[in-house]
Design a protein around this nucleic acid. Sequence first.
DNA 1: TCAAAAGTAGAACGGCTATTCGAGTCAATG
DNA 2: CATTGACTCGAATAGCCGTTCTACTTTTGA
Lengths: 212, 212
Amino acid sequence: MPEPLGEFQRRMLEFIVNYIRREGMPPTNREIGKAMKIASTGHVDYHLSMLEKRGYIIREAKKSRGIKLTRHPWGIPVEGTIAAGEPIEIFSEPDQTIEVGHGVDPESSFALIVRGQSMIEDHICDGDYVVIKRQRTCENGDIVVAVHLVEGTPGKATLKRFFLEKEQVRLQPANAELEPIYIPRDEWDREWEIQGKVIAIVRHYGGSGRAA
Amino acid sequence: MPEPLGEFQRRMLEFIVNYIRREGMPPTNREIGKAMKIASTGHVDYHLSMLEKRGYIIREAKKSRGIKLTRHPWGIPVEGTIAAGEPIEIFSEPDQTIEVGHGVDPESSFALIVRGQSMIEDHICDGDYVVIKRQRTCENGDIVVAVHLVEGTPGKATLKRFFLEKEQVRLQPANAELEPIYIPRDEWDREWEIQGKVIAIVRHYGGSGRAA
DNA sequence: TCAAAAGTAGAACGGCTATTCGAGTCAATG
DNA sequence: CATTGACTCGAATAGCCGTTCTACTTTTGA
């Protein structure tokens, strides 16, 4: 739906979104100009009209701070789905977001949709959203998104509980039917990466979400 | 913390909150005046300074729409805890809220903290928040908050799955150790009330929330 | 190459905004 | 009764805001 934007207008929209998130109100044209190092308010008006024409904002004429975002900025991106018995790809589903409250920083968080029963004993069901906080490290017992690097690039990802044991890392599913993954320390350090840990789960009943 | 407000200022604050929720920006003093049928902008300014002095808002001097709420308006109230094996009271814990996204109407929704394991087989754990949409009716299989009326006034509440059977209503816990509650139709109609149904659950890991 | 489109700047205008001031009403309190 | 505090109004003011206009430069595309 929304036409792609040039670099400048993309940064301008980003400023507006962050301003709203920070201040609780949209910025004035002059505040935008100052932040974008634009000397002229007419110039700002021009770019705003571009953003409006392309469907990113709606402006209310003559009203101070009369900018509305067409998509509210509170959601965190849903970056894909995650399994389950077998590690699967994290595929990007752009534009889909889920709202989890202002306490969660959308810069450092994202969500995944759980597929399968691999975490069922932790009461995380098929269809649940898991909210992930991006971090490279974690503690024993954390539920983490672990990625197996293939030739340096991210390969398959899996959702498991993390345990650092003597000579190995154990990635433990919460399902008695599934075997844990054991990874020697050196291989772990070389070929694996923590992408983040689960800080919350959200389950919707009825209508859209499944998880009956 | 916040001093109580008079009726008028309470309604004024309510208007501001709703305006922000609706418009995505705070109202101007004149818009407040118009909504509250106040003829003078100075008069609005006076009441705003009262709201600020009593800790409900923060104003940024000279800025248009320079009103910030001290507590953001996106949360839905957490009205208490709910059991478990035995029905317990819904006790009011004022001021505590949980954010669940703009899709949930805070007028018609609230949240409860689950205590105990009565819904564990539906993967609702001790410490989870259940988001309830207020409604008087429900369909078979819905998870509902059912209240047993004692002499016409709300008595004990319980969280169960609802099933309408031939001559009775069955309130089914999701825990094999617990017995369902069977209620004859006439007693149900007379002494029980649906307070709402579960539309979502939220679980926080680490820090505040429990649910390890 | 040349013309159109897109981007930039500055200034100016009229309306909007928050704030202040002076004056007044009303109820409660001593 | 006099006083105080809370509330209300109307008017005035200085500054802020969105918009428009003209002029200029750069980029695009045929």
